[in-house]
Amino acid sequence: MTLDELAIGQEATIVTVGGEKILRRRLLDMGLTPRTKVMIRKVAPLGDPIELRLRGYLLTIRKEDAKQIEVSL
């Protein structure tokens, strides 16, 4: 499944990170690397973007970008 499909509060492990070159590099640099544990903490009031918790900090990314991240429960 992909990261955007997780329910709020559900934790998963990243399998692969996809996306266009610059975006993908940014995601990797921010610590969204394979085997990292990640959780969706919140969805923005307008339904997008989402707030993630990983490596002890909070990060926000857009849903369409989260779709490119494969996770496993």
């Binding site: 610059i22 975006l23 940014r26 926000t60 857009r62």
Partner: peptide
Amino acid sequence: GQPTPFVLELP
């Protein structure tokens, strides 16, 4: 061009 990706830390 490509907009900067929206990958933002919430400090």
